[in-house]
Amino acid sequence: MTWTCDVDTLNPAVTGAAVSMASSVVWALTGMRFGTCEVTLRPCRRDCGGSFFDDFGPPWTGSWSYPQPALIGGQWLNLTCGGCAGDCSCSTVSEVLLPAPVNRIVAVKVDGTPLVTGAYRVDNNRLLVRTDGGEWPRCNDLALSDSEVGTWSVTAAYGEDIPDGAALAVGQLACEIAKAAAGGDCKLPAGLQQLARQGVTISYPDVGELFRQGRTGLYLVDLFVATWNPHGLRQRSRVYNVDRPTVRRTGT
């Protein structure tokens, strides 16, 4: 956050509360869009090895780079390896499917030991691909902590990074809140709409209408809000797929 006024003479408790309040206000006005959180996942590997099970009979084992015809239930079907070997790749890719979209990977631990960053990458904001020649463990003992042998975990950051302009917007709003709380003059709009004195009439914006439009009357704050939430959304959009399997999130 960047202060846009001198706060050296203000009580630190007041400025701290002002920063907290300003951050919440700007976050709400931008549709609760920005900010990241870290989640530790305990996934299972997605690969072409092992067996292919169907509803008609025994498993079909093996890994293939092209469709294999098989007679199942009186019908000829092409069995593939599950789709993890891409169309332009001749090798099997060891990958796990994470809840999307992933902002960044914070850490990956296998048998309690963190892997180096170059040992993996993220594709399509959701596929964690092994790039060091190794394979993701097939088993993940969920009865143990991810610091133990026989386990592995992925700690990923979800959400959207805060834009640089937010520092100025929050700073300006925090300044005016702090000055108002200290009993000083501030630029926050009051309930006054018109002032007439010595033949001069000054009109002020309707504070109620400002708030209904998601505005504060402060230039930097309103500029930031208009840029990142021009349609006044209350919260960011979400898409739910109730049929898709989820990845276990430990401790939640």
Rank of each mutant, 00 (worst) to 15 (best):
K179N: 10
G191N: 08
P114G: 08
A17Y: 01
D55P: 00
V221C: 10
Q198P: 01
F34Y: 15
G57H: 09
F53H: 15
P58I: 06
G62N: 10
E176M: 07
G62M: 05
P67G: 11
V110E: 11
G74T: 11
V14F: 02
R121S: 13
S153C: 02
D164C: 06
T252G: 05
T250I: 13
F56K: 04
C88T: 10
Q213Y: 01
Y120A: 01
S89F: 14
T117D: 14
T36S: 04
D185F: 09
A28L: 06
V26L: 05
A181F: 04
Y204V: 09
P245Q: 15
D111V: 01
S24K: 07
T36P: 06
A180H: 11
D55C: 13
R234M: 04
D8C: 02
R130E: 01
N140H: 07
F56S: 09
R46V: 13
A156Q: 03
T61N: 15
A107M: 08
V170P: 04
E160V: 14
F52K: 08
F56V: 15
T246P: 00
R197W: 15
G232Q: 02
W60D: 04
K109T: 06
I202M: 15
R234P: 00
P99I: 03
S24Q: 13
D222A: 05
G251Q: 06
R236C: 07
D243A: 10
S237H: 08
P59H: 11
Y158I: 10
S153A: 12
Y240P: 00
Y158M: 10
T155D: 04
C48S: 15
G31Y: 05
A196M: 08
P59R: 13
A226E: 06
S94F: 15
S145H: 07
L173P: 03
W136D: 12
L142C: 04
S20R: 15
V239D: 08
N125G: 14
G217N: 13
T216P: 09
S24D: 14
R45Q: 12
P205G: 03
L144T: 10
L79C: 04
F224P: 00
V200H: 09
L195T: 12
W152K: 06
P245C: 14
N125Y: 14
C44R: 12
G150P: 12
Q68K: 15
Q235L: 01
V242G: 00
W136T: 13
D6M: 02
P12N: 03
T30N: 00
N229E: 03
A169V: 07
S91W: 14
P137Y: 01
V26W: 00
G16Y: 07
G86A: 14
G150W: 09
A70P: 05
G171A: 03
G57K: 05
D55M: 08
R138P: 00
N78F: 12
L210I: 05
R121Q: 11
A119V: 03
D54G: 13
Q235V: 01
W3A: 10
S24E: 12
P163I: 02
P114I: 00
K187I: 02
R215P: 09
R215Q: 12
S145K: 08
L79W: 09
Y66N: 03
A85T: 13
G74L: 13
V200L: 14
V242K: 00
D161T: 10
E38Y: 13
G134F: 02
N11C: 07
A100E: 12
K179D: 04
L115A: 10
S23T: 14
L233F: 02
M1W: 00
W64F: 12
